[in-house]
Design a protein around this nucleic acid. Structure first.
Lengths: 207, 207
DNA sequence: GTCTATAGGCAGATAGAC
DNA sequence: GTCTATCTGCCTATAGAC
C-alpha cells in the first residue's frame, strides 16, 4: 500500500514487536527500544510521533505479514489438513522464539489500548477467522474434516485453543506444551481414516 | 491458613482484582485503587508494602477461592460431564463481568512479573490442571468421556481453549463467543450417546 | 534524521504527624 | 490505620540546534 518505510523505521518495528510479544505493549517503553537500537528516545519520536502510532504500525505490519503467510499456504499446499498444519506452524515459529502472538498479547491488554489500536486488533482477528472458516468449510465439504458447529464458530474455537495454548505454555517456558495442544486440536478436526476419504471421493462407501 | 485479613485489605483486594482482570497487573496503579476506595496511596502501602506483595496476595486469594469452587463441584454433582459443565460455568461468571481470568491475564504479563508472582501463577495452573486431569481420567474410565491424549494433556488443552476463548471474546465484547467455544469444546469431549453409556455400564453392547 | 535538553505527569515507595 | 508531604525515577512527548 504505502511506499517502502525507511530501514530505521523497520528496525524500530522489529524491536518493538519483539518487546510487545514478550512483555506486552504496556511492558516496554521508548527507552527500551532506544537502548537496543543505540539511538535516543527523541529519534524514535521522529519515526513514530506517539506510542499509539507505533502500536498501530505494529499491528498493521503484523497483519500484512500474516496475510502473506496465508496466501503462501494457499499457493503451496492442497487439502485442508495440510493447510491447517501449515497454519499451526505459523504459531509454532512464534512460540520457539519465546514470544506470544502479538495480537493475542494485545487482546489481553485490550481495555488499556488507544481506540485506533483496538479497531486494528479486531480487524486482525476478523481476517484470520474468515480465512480459517473458509478452509474449515471447504475441508468439511471435501470430507477431510469433521465438526458440528458452523465453520466460523469452529474457526473461532481453533483460534482460541491456539492463542490459549501459547498463553499458558509461556508460563511454563515449555513449547512442547503448545505443540501437544495444537497437534491434538488438529487430530480432533481431521476425519480419522484418510484411506476412507480417498475411497469416498471415488464413490465407495465404508462402514 | 493465616488469620482473617482486615476488611480494608479485602476491599483493596476486591478492587485490585477487578482492575487486574480488566486492565492487567501493569494496567493499574495504587492511585486507581486509592481513588475508588477514597483513601490515599500511602494507606494502601500500609496494607500491602509493595505492589508485588499485593500481586502475590491477589493470586493466593484467587487460587483459594478457585479451590473452594472445585471442592463445591465435587460435593454437589456426580459424573464427569456435569462436573465439567460446572467447571466451565466458573469461567462464564468471570466473562459476564467483562473480566479475564486473573491468571490468564497474568500469564500474558508473565515476563514482567516479579518472581514470587510467577511462582504462584505456576502453582495456580498446576492445581487447576491436576483437578481437571483427575476428572477427565475418571470420566474416561467411566465411559462418559472420550479423548486420545493423556488426561493431563487433555486438561492442558481444555484450559487452553477456555483461556483463549476468554482472551479473544473480550476483544469483541461478546460473551456468547466464549460460550460457543466452551459448549462445543465440551461436546467434543463427552461421549455422544448417553443412553449407550448407561447400557454399557449394564454390560449391554451397542453398535 | 539524530541529537541535547527539558517539560509535565505519574509510577511505586517512605517518613513522620495524628 | 490513615493522613500530608515528599522523594526518586521513569514515562511520553516536544523544542530547537546541528
Amino acid at each position: 500500500m504505502s511506499g517502502p518505510a525507511s530501514d530505521t523505521s523497520q528496525r524500530i518495528l522489529d524491536i518493538a514487536e519483539e518487546l510487545a510479544q514478550k512483555r506486552g505493549f504496556n511492558g516496554f517503553s521508548y527507552a527500551d527500544i532506544a537502548e537496543r537500537l543505540t539511538v535516543t528516545k527523541a529519534s524514535l519520536h521522529y519515526h513514530f510521533r506517539s506510542k499509539a502510532d507505533l502500536g498501530c504500525a505494529l499491528i498493521e505490519r503484523y497483519r500484512d505479514a500474516f496475510a502473506d503467510s496465508l496466501r503462501a499456504i494457499e499457493r503451496d499446499v492442497d487439502g485442508a489438513p495440510s493447510k491447517l498444519r501449515r497454519y499451526v506452524a505459523l504459531y509454532d515459529v512464534v512460540m520457539r522464539q519465546d514470544r506470544m502472538c502479538l495480537c493475542g498479547m494485545l487482546a489481553a491488554e485490550y481495555a488499556t489500548l488507544p481506540e485506533p489500536m483496538q479497531a486494528r486488533l479486531r480487524g486482525f482477528f476478523d481476517a484470520n477467522e474468515r480465512w480459517l472458516a473458509r478452509v474449515l468449510g471447504g475441508g468439511r465439504r471435501a470430507g477431510e474434516l469433521a465438526f458440528s458447529e458452523s465453520p466460523r464458530a469452529r474457526a473461532a474455537r481453533l483460534t482460541s485453543v491456539l492463542e490459549g495454548a501459547m498463553l499458558v505454555a509461556r508460563v511454563y517456558g515449555d513449547g512442547e506444551r503448545f505443540n501437544s495442544a495444537a497437534r491434538n486440536a488438529l487430530a480432533d478436526l481431521v476425519t480419522p481414516a484418510p484411506a476412507s476419504r480417498a475411497a469416498r471421493r471415488g464413490g465407495r462407501r465404508i462402514a
